[in-house]
Design a protein around this nucleic acid. Structure first.
Lengths: 348, 348
DNA sequence: TTGTACGCGTTATCAA
DNA sequence: TTGATAACGCGTACAA
């Protein structure tokens, strides 16, 4: 910044024109070897630093993608963001990142900023802005694990995950299947976990119970909720082998602790499966079974999808493609120590 | 992007000049109320979208700050990044974020990109690029919790944290003080934790032992390391009340689990303090005492420091200020359930 | 209060 | 293979 060396300076020093200097950076092969060497030399001597923003004004390509996450406090989002950044950088994209705290208005401001900076596409992870709004932005958008009616998306196969979790519980010999989840809208991809659970209940004919209620965002809230649920479960299904499928690892971990604290161990009477494969599932006092979402795959797929749209727009006129794509990435059951076969086993 | 409306279009439609349209956005108060209304109207009708990149070319201000974190897998970095984003957005800055995976070369590329995009400043959290390099960039730089000899920085008061942790252990009546940490360079701010520990050992005259070795990055590595350390501690100090200060919560949590798994509870013979106040410290089977780094304060301070430098450069010629500033933010002891007073207590 | 004219650093289009 | 010149969209003296 101290002295801004530009193409003009290099041109003057080398005797070539600005156009040739530009070519050196963009189509070097079109220059004679000698020219390249001369320019290379001058660039070094002058200490030239490229200015990609000026290039943007001239050719329209920012190579910037916008990302909005709901927060980074939750491990899942942080992990996902990291994978998104890595996937995009391989293709030469940079990211302007916003964490919206799930505030609709804030998010609106952020989206305006992103548009003002002419981002070429948007990866939307936050879920407070409806997809209709996103579709209106006029740039390629891919959402991850959120309502996606009017935009492209990549989601985990929540249904399959819910199915795998509950089937696994049934197979361990549980007598009653229990599902703990938030109070989800059916439009949310995560609702698939509930569908998977319900299907298993139907297929197996096992007794069941769903606790669908706001789980809370703080440790204390979640703990109190889990505590009440634990009490209720024990009253309703005493001495039955209870297979519990909790929709996220944080809540699952807290429930696990409540159980271990109460019994001094994780009793055979309980089986537990979480969701996300976040660090706590592995680091818990009893490492617990969970459903892994492959964030790397999800991010790479989203990135590829977005880049494809961006390329399309460059070739086929700026007419935004109206064919929406929704990808679903399979999940994986990670079996750990909370789903050992029931010893009493009336079933099996 | 579909049709790019520019100031020229607004000017044509309203009959005003481009300059006046520009004024509408930058010095609206200098226009008559009527003019403002007319322009406002035209903007709406045309569906104008501002282009902040063109503005950059004209006035040099990108309002973009670069951030490089080592990774987002660790909760501490994700949390810190979130706070940085929030602190900066309040001042109208946007962030291009890179996660370098602690790779020196990758990081070099990222830094070049940031310079090419004319970021106004850099927040550096990753620690593989020495500060001499950072100082050469020619833009304001603030580092957080890393080697900072040649640049401005904000760090947690690691010394105070180490002191508080070990003193607290001493006060609970521990007979031997133990510190587990990585094999740190003395240039690393985190080395202050070791200094704090050592000073407490000297002051109290208690028996002590330091385990300074690579802790590892995976659960398995850390667990194996902790397991060996636990064994060694027990052999060296049988039946003594052991006060253990572990330099991060992940490792502390794993050690805690090993102890609880072995004894079926967290015995009076052990006292434990972690570092970071990451979620695991609260969600562990026995919520454990830890040292909290106020990431919000750290981020806000770093942001303020950086912005100050940026402003300075705008006024006082582009001569980069050579007076370095290093801030230190106090930590806080969070007392939970792993540091209850020793019952046997030969001391106290 | 408003307009004119030029500059910001690069790329694209035509020529040569 | 290279050059001249006009964009790109906005800000800002300077003038009116």
């Amino acid at each position: 910044m101290i002295k801004k060396i530009t193409f003009a300076d290099i041109a003057k020093k080398t005797g070539y024109s600005k156009a040739t200097i530009s070519r050196y950076f963009n189509h070097a092969s079109a220059l004679s070897a000698e020219t390249q060497a001369v320019i290379e030399q001058a660039i070094q001597e002058l200490g030239y630093r490229e200015n990609k923003l000026a290039r943007v004004l001239a050719n329209g390509r920012t190579e910037i993608i916008g990302v909005v996450v709901p927060s980074l406090y939750m491990h899942y989002y942080a992990d996902l963001l990291e994978k998104i950044l890595l996937a995009g950088e391989e293709h030469g994209y940079k990211f302007i990142v916003f964490s919206s705290q799930e505030d609709r208005e804030t998010e609106h401001t952020y989206l305006s900023e992103l548009m003002a900076y002419k981002v070429e596409g948007l990866i939307m992870v936050s879920h407070v802005t409806p997809s209709v709004e996103l579709a209106k932005l006029g740039i390629p958008v891919v959402t991850i694990e959120r309502e996606d009616k009017y935009v492209n998306s990549v989601n985990a196969n929540n249904y399959q995950g819910g199915l795998a979790a509950s089937q696994h519980l049934a197979e361990t010999g549980c007598e009653v299947l229990i599902h703990i989840n938030g109070d989800l809208s059916t439009a949310s991809p995560a609702f698939g976990r509930i569908r998977g659970f319900r299907e298993t209940v139907q297929k197996t004919g096992l007794a069941s119970r769903e606790y669908l209620q706001r789980l809370g965002n703080t440790y204390e809230e979640i703990r109190d909720g889990m505590s009440a649920i634990l009490k209720d479960m024990e009253e309703r299904f005493p001495h039955k082998c209870k297979g519990i499928f909790v929709s996220n690892d944080t809540a699952a971990g807290i429930l696990l602790n409540l159980i271990v604290q109460k019994y001094g161990c994780f009793p055979d009477e309980f089986k537990l499966v979480g969701f996300d494969d976040s660090p706590i599932s592995r680091e818990a006092i009893v490492p617990f079974t969970t459903i892994r979402q492959d964030t790397r795959l999800i991010a790479e797929d989203a990135m590829e999808m977005l880049i494809r749209r961006i390329e399309e727009r460059k070739e086929h006129v700026p007419e935004i493609s109206k064919t929406l794509v929704h990808h679903v990435i399979d999940t994986e059951l990670i079996i750990r120590d909370t789903t050992k076969k029931c010893m009493k086993g009336t079933r099996q």
